[in-house]
Design a protein around this nucleic acid. Sequence first.
DNA 1: ATCCATGATGTCAGTAACTGTCAACGCCTA
DNA 2: TAGGCGTTGACAGTTACTGACATCATGGAT
Lengths: 189, 189
Amino acid sequence: MGRWQPDSRGRLQEAALALYSEHGFDQTTAAQIAARAGLTERTFFRHFADKREVLFGGSALLQERIVAGVAGAPPTDGPLDAVGGGLAAASDMLGEFRRDLSRQRHAVIVANPELRERELAKLADYAESVATVLRDRGVGEPQASLAADAGMTVFRVAVERWASGTDDRALDAVMRDAMAELRAVAGGC
Amino acid sequence: MGRWQPDSRGRLQEAALALYSEHGFDQTTAAQIAARAGLTERTFFRHFADKREVLFGGSALLQERIVAGVAGAPPTDGPLDAVGGGLAAASDMLGEFRRDLSRQRHAVIVANPELRERELAKLADYAESVATVLRDRGVGEPQASLAADAGMTVFRVAVERWASGTDDRALDAVMRDAMAELRAVAGGC
DNA sequence: ATCCATGATGTCAGTAACTGTCAACGCCTA
DNA sequence: TAGGCGTTGACAGTTACTGACATCATGGAT
């Protein structure tokens, strides 16, 4: 065994979620998280750019999945259909994850404005990369941005209902319903 | 004339926009802004909760206008039509404002991730209050949240195009077009 | 006219988020 | 065995932000 325990990053994420849950985000210092993980404050900030980022460690992977899902949609799909493919991929990934941890994390995030702010920023990142994929598929502007952003709205509303317990079905079902509702609200047919 | 110059808040906003433009958000300290406004750092934080908020002084008023616009839409309007009424009110308000200042402010915000994050949070606030108005109008969930959020997407995309110079028309025209594009993308008719 | 409540500001001390720098240490490879 | 590389610790420093208290003008009450 090495000089240090393995998986510093993972230990910091666990410690942060536990402390944020127990004492609240504001009342938890980076030094406390580091100490609980058996590390120093300096090391915390080497792994995570700031105190919020420690709760979003999986966002890069999720973004890759979403992008891959959109890129893999049939060429005949319209913009929003393609985005739906990305949302399906995201649902699969989150569905594999322990739902109790998702709920705990969600509860921490909704309890703090700074964390809600960061989550919105992550969604905006996803939307921007999805819009890029749509443009690669030949979708123009502003359609690409609108479709990507509307898709992230669907994602946000669905995850909110799923993680808060408002809707107890599997995430992919909640997601499909939300997409259908958006089409109904916006379609005006 | 009193002991102090009038309109401390306005002077702080002007000083901040100028310094953020000239040196960048990160390279500007709250003390520098306060000094330029003839005040102290402590007074800066009495007027604004943090360094970012000084750029969003008008957001409460804008939110009121949007909410009033939605609430004032004809009862026969669908959810997204009602939100369109709010966007029209927002366009009117921003249209009255000096466009060069809007562009300068927009340039500062897009140049900094923390400021973009805050702007997204403001839009989410608008969306939440719009969703509340929609529910008061009898719209259920998740339709209210989806319509409100989709509306803010339209707002964001339109203001981005208007303030960045991508689209040189008046804001209300850009906004109406964006709404129509969203309906076309989402409607699938 | 004087006193006092109120509101805006200044002053100062303090906490904690974050950063730069350098040293220490284990691992891997030549 | 030597040396490069990556991770961590130690430590000093800046700055965002907060709490507590003093100061000074304004306006109303006495």
